[in-house]
C-alpha cells in the first residue's frame, strides 16, 4: 500500500483523480437516492404553493436574513412538539426553493407560526419588537411598512418556479401581480379570481392594516401567517 502511494504521489493527475473519486462516494450514496425514492417526500393532495403575495414576503424574509435566527423545522422531539406543534413533514417544504429550515434558534421556530398571532400584533412587532415583547432582542424592521411592494417581477418569479416543478399554472403566472393586490384587498375587484386560483383556505385581508397601499409589510405578514398552513396533512389524523 505504501509503495502504491509512493508512486501515486509522483503523478499529480493521479492525486487529482483519487481525490475526486474519494470525495464523490459519500455524496452520491446519500444524495442520489433522495431524488429516486418515492417515500422521501409524499406530497399531500391538498398542498398548495405560496400565493404571489406570500412568495414576495418570503423573498423579503430571505433578504433580511430572518432565517439566520429563526428555524422552520420542528424536530420529532417531545418538547418541540409541545412547544411548536406537530413535527415538520418533508412534504411541507416540497415547493420551497430554497428550503428555510434554518440552523439556529436565536428566536423561536416559525414553522407553524401562521395564524397564532394577529396581523396587528405582527405589524407592531416588526416595526418595533420591544413594543409588544419588552425583552425581545429582535432587530426592528420599520422600513417594511414604509416601502411599497414591488410586484412587477412576480409573474417572472412564478414562471421560474413553475419551470422548477412548483404547480403555478399559466393562469396563476399571468395574474401574479393582480393576485398579490387582490389578497390584501378583500373588497377589491380581483378577489373572486384569486380565490378561484388558490382556494378558499387562503387568507384574504389587509395584512398590514391599510388596504389602500400594498407594502412589504403586507407581504411579510401574509407569508408569516401562511407558515404551517399550506397543507392540512399534519393536523388530520391518518
Amino acid at each position: 500500500m505504501l509503495r502504491l502511494h509512493y508512486n501515486l504521489e509522483r503523478i499529480s493527475m493521479g492525486l487529482v483523480a483519487g481525490i475526486i473519486v474519494a470525495a464523490s462516494i459519500g455524496g452520491l450514496v446519500e444524495i442520489a437516492p433522495l431524488f429516486t425514492i418515492d417515500e422521501t417526500v409524499e406530497v399531500p393532495a391538498d398542498l398548495r404553493p405560496h400565493t404571489p403575495l406570500e412568495l414576495a414576503g418570503r423573498e423579503i424574509y430571505i433578504r433580511e436574513g430572518c432565517y439566520a435566527c429563526h428555524s422552520q423545522m420542528i424536530r420529532s422531539l417531545a418538547d418541540e412538539i409541545d412547544r411548536y406543534g406537530h413535527y415538520s413533514l418533508a412534504s411541507e417544504s416540497a415547493y420551497d426553493h430554497p428550503m428555510l429550515w434554518g440552523s439556529k434558534r436565536t428566536g423561536p421556530d416559525l414553522a407553524r407560526v401562521g395564524e397564532k398571532y394577529s396581523d396587528v400584533w405582527h405589524a407592531a412587532h416588526l416595526v418595533n419588537p420591544r413594543a409588544v415583547v419588552p425583552a425581545s432582542i429582535m432587530p426592528a424592521y420599520p422600513w417594511l411598512a414604509a416601502t411599497p411592494l414591488d410586484i412587477s417581477t412576480l409573474s417572472a418569479q412564478l414562471a421560474t418556479l413553475a419551470r422548477l416543478g412548483v404547480p403555478y399554472s399559466p393562469e396563476r403566472i399571468a395574474n401574479a401581480a393582480a393576485d398579490a393586490l387582490a389578497q390584501a384587498r378583500p373588497d377589491g375587484a380581483g378577489g373572486a379570481g384569486f380565490v378561484a386560483r388558490y382556494g378558499d383556505r387562503v387568507a384574504v385581508r389587509p395584512f398590514g392594516g391599510d388596504p389602500a397601499r400594498l407594502t412589504e409589510m403586507d407581504a411579510v405578514i401574509a407569508y408569516l401567517q401562511s407558515l404551517g398552513r399550506l397543507t392540512t396533512a399534519p393536523y388530520v389524523p391518518q
Partner: peptide, 18 residues
C-alpha cells in the same frame, strides 16, 4: 440578481448541508 435554487425542500436541505 434574483434566482431560485433548483433543489427544494428535503433535497435542498441535504445538498445545502453536504
Amino acid at each position: 440578481a434574483r434566482s431560485f435554487p433548483v433543489w427544494s425542500g428535503v433535497q435542498d436541505a441535504m445538498v445545502q448541508w453536504w
